[in-house]
Nucleic acid binder design. Structure first.
Length: 801
DNA sequence: TGACCACAGTTTTTT
DNA sequence: ACTGTGGTCA
């Protein structure tokens, strides 16, 4: 073929491939078709980042590097060039097949692509959409979290870094337990050396790959007492973990990095395996994760990182925004593509977001734009206090509902979880269904952890930590003394605790408790036998609940709490079942790993029609038609700790940016003039971020904006104003009631009276304590439990039955 | 071993 | 205000 034909082929090929991604905008398409070499994708909020990622992988699998290459295979003939040039939509199946075949240049096998994310949710979404778009074979792409990818590598080569392939994963709580023990053993004061604090230092040291030995010698040189103790604790901690064949979350990455650095053949294997490396949410990576990705991509250097420096909100957990800012320095010749068209929000919302984020210094610089309509201005509402704020939000949600919005179209986002209380109260009062995301997770519940601990010990007898958790739970007469003796013996012999406990007869000091120990190990061994005999996991779990007498213990005292606990441990069985459904070869070890790395079971589920409440952090990556951002006050958001610290302020501002850009159509920001926080009511100034929102896209409501000169009186009546007519004003605290005492006569109530409350439903009066002209009532409500109310204020919302 | 009291701490969160 | 924790006592 002539030179001319070859270049015509390249052009036609590119055109055909482009046509396969016609639904993307030019920038998105460029991001998809730029296949080779380092690529930094700056993807603004709502710019279709995930879509790009998926199409990029699809392009690699279908066409390899053809869209980014001038190479033409020798097999291409003149006729092929004409064929491509003449192609016209719509294509017949056979034309399409031929075009695909002609254009593909070294198409990539799914298992030669790795796409790392931070959350399982993101990884699953990626995988799912890939399979839907391409074929089941696309499921072979390594679409995983950092931790699951590393685990997969580590399980294979654990021996090379000093562990067994069956290592256990310690979560944060486990690590804390270990550290607490160590601090105690070292005779240190746990006030001066809180386990959490020591662990945070260790985590930072791990991030910079400092070994305990290095830190120890460095501390010895400095001669600083604190540093020395911390280094010793680090050393002990690492030793303890190794003895238990356990790794913490940091270790998973650290050990993988070390494995790849120190073993040329392993490194070479993965470097040639992963022809293409993609990293999602790159702004959230820490130094270790940077090392990991650059090691993995070290062969072909086909690394594509996607992120938004303006959305980096996890500095507090080790993310370094420098990774994304310095990408071009770390990878010479890196290409940069910006996705700045936003498909999510109205002009007003976007302008507000841009106005705020523009105040940050350390950023790549990016300006989101949209072709969406201007939309309504951002509403900034001033409330008198957090209850009035909540009441306004509820009223607006009800108004939204009247305009035809679904409940789930509304989200309320706050800076701190503590703020959800006042909101919940008011939503409940107005009968608005809501769901709170976040808080204590299922797998963090004590009873669930207990059951998991049993499973862990059966899986790995040398898991001392979990063994100690369950050996006397339910109580088996193996108290602290017996356990302490056993532990001492184990330490002396350098054996796992279980071995001592398994052969108590071999140790004279254990004479008294030998039988009890044996009873316990018999339970464990008996259960382990069932697994050896291939009993299916769900049945096995039933046996476990039974034989350990854990379920029985809960049934014996059927309090409300214990009933919930029983439900929870039964619920764990459905986790096992769903694990079995999604795995070809289910094993106990496999299940435990999944639990350890997949904790976000309680996720935002778009199916039920309820208002969603969550922190601004949890909202990242989500979007809602109507968004309420509450608590925009200096000291709360930005938080007290951030004010005065430049870096922290920028992070708070980024969080603000993230929060604002969650909204699609309507954004309401509220602040209160006084707020009760930590049991104290304090005056609050509007957040400085509010001043950074351009005036022309916002409208102020509430407070003095509505009430003019009455800006500092205490006779505000927001509550009444925004409450549903049939609902009386909510009970209030005496202090703020001075000018607002209800005219309703105080109910004369006695112990045992039944009452009906507009907000809390029906209940029975438990106690009445006279206080001046008022009385403190304690009422057990059927639905929500026991509440303490002041008789005077509560009378307005309550009637005697 | 369990129940009760004093006391501190209290941003954000994934793995 | 609230909650979880750690210590003491029966």
């Amino acid at each position: 073929m002539t030179e001319e034909l070859i270049s015509r082929f390249v052009v036609a090929r590119r055109k055909y491939i482009e046509s396969q991604f016609h639904n993307l905008n030019p920038m998105q398409r460029q991001a998809v078709l730029t296949t080779d070499g380092p690529l930094l994708l700056l993807a603004g909020a709502g710019s279709g980042k995930t879509t790009v990622l998926i199409n990029r992988i699809a392009n690699l699998i279908r066409f390899g590097c053809a869209s980014d290459s001038n190479l033409v295979p020798d097999t291409v003939e003149e006729e092929d060039v004409f064929f491509l040039e003449q192609l016209q939509e719509p294509l017949s199946d056979s034309d399409r097949r031929r075009a695909d075949y002609l254009c593909a240049l070294d198409p990539v096998k799914p298992w030669n692509i790795i796409a790392v994310t931070f959350t399982n949710k993101a990884a699953n979404e990626l995988k799912e959409r890939l399979v839907n778009m391409l074929s089941p074979e696309a499921g072979e792409v390594w679409a995983m979290t950092f931790h699951s990818a590393c685990c997969r590598i580590l399980r294979r080569y654990a021996e090379l870094v000093g562990y067994t392939g069956s290592f256990t994963i310690y979560d944060t709580a486990d690590s804390e337990r270990v550290m607490k023990d160590i601090i105690k053993e070292m005779g240190l004061d746990d006030k001066t050396f809180p386990a959490k604090y020591v662990l945070s230092i260790i985590s930072r040291e791990k991030d910079s790959m400092t070994s305990p030995e290095t830190l120890l010698s460095r501390a010895e040189m400095s001669g600083e007492f604190r540093a020395l103790q911390v280094a010793r604790a680090y050393n002990k901690y690492q030793t303890r973990l190794k003895e238990n064949n356990a790794v913490d979350f940091d270790d998973i990455i650290l050990l993988t990095v070390r494995l790849l650095q120190e073993n040329e053949d392993v490194r070479a294997y993965y470097q040639q395996k992963f022809r293409y490396v993609l990293v999602d949410e790159y702004q959230d990576t820490n130094h270790l994760q940077y090392l990991l990705t650059s090691l993995l991509a070290g062969g072909y250097e086909n690394i594509c990182v996607v992120g938004d420096d303006d959305q980096s909100i996890y500095r507090f957990r080790g993310a370094t925004i420098e990774n994304i800012l310095d990408f071009e320095k770390q990878y010479r010749g890196a290409r940069v593509i910006r996705l700045e068209q936003n498909y999510r929000s109205t002009q007003s919302i976007l302008n507000a977001a841009n106005g705020v984020i523009a105040h940050n210094m350390g950023r790549k610089g990016k300006r989101l734009w949209t072709s969406n309509p201007q939309g309504d201005p951002v509403v900034v509402y001033e409330a008198s206090d957090e209850r009035a704020e909540a009441s306004y939000v509820s009223s607006q949600i009800l108004a939204g509902q009247r305009r035809g919005k679904a409940m789930k179209d509304h989200a309320i986002l706050y800076r701190t979880n503590a703020q959800s209380n006042a909101l919940e109260y008011d939503l409940k009062r107005n009968g608005i269904p809501y769901r709170i995301i976040g808080g204590t997770r299922f797998f963090d519940r004590a009873e669930v952890k207990d059951m998991l601990a049993y499973l862990c010990v059966i899986n790995n007898r040398s898991d001392d930590l979990r063994l100690k958790r369950i050996i006397n739970n339910p109580p088996r007469g193996l108290g602290p003394k017996a356990l302490d003796t056993a532990q001492r013996l184990a330490t002396a012999e350098g054996k796992p605790l279980y071995e001592v406990v398994f052969h108590p007869d071999a140790y004279a000091p254990l004479e008294k408790s030998a039988t009890k120990f044996k009873n316990f190990t018999q339970i464990i061994e008996g259960l382990a036998q069932l697994l050896v005999a291939d009993m299916p996991l769900p049945e096995f779990y039933e046996e476990l609940m039974l034989r350990t007498r854990y379920a029985q213990m809960l049934q014996e005292k059927p309090t409300e709490e214990n009933k919930t606990r029983l439900e929870n441990i039964r619920e764990l069985k459905s986790s096992i079942l769903s694990y079995m459904e999604n795995t070809q070869q289910p094993t106990l070890a496999g299940f435990l790993e999944e639990i350890a790395l997949y904790t976000d079971l309680e996720e935002y589920n778009a199916s039920d029609d309820a208002v969603v409440l969550m922190t601004m952090h949890s909202a990242k990556g989500l979007e809602f038609p109507n968004v309420f951002l509450v608590g925009f006050e200096d000291g709360l958001f930005p938080g007290m700790r951030s004010i005065g610290d430049h870096e922290e302020m920028e992070e708070e501002r980024r969080l603000c940016y993230v929060a604002i850009t969650r909204a699609k159509q309507n954004l309401t920001i509220t602040h209160a003039r006084s707020r009760m926080l930590y049991g104290r009511t304090a005056a609050a100034m509007p957040s400085r971020f509010l001043r950074e929102i351009p005036e022309d896209v916002m409208v102020k409501k509430g407070g003095y904006h509505t009430y003019g000169q009455q800006s500092c009186g205490d006779n505000f009546t927001y509550t009444a104003r925004y409450t549903q007519p049939q609902v009386a004003p909510r009970p209030d605290f005496a202090s703020s009631m001075a000018s607002n005492t209800p005219k309703t006569p105080m109910l004369e109530l006695n112990r045992g009276d039944m009452v009906s409350h507009t907000a809390f439903g029906t209940g029975v009066v438990l106690s009445v304590m006279k206080m001046g002209g008022d009385a403190l009532l304690e009422i057990a409500f059927d639905q929500i439990g026991t509440k303490k109310l002041m008789a005077k204020t509560a009378s307005a919302h309550m009637k005697k039955l």
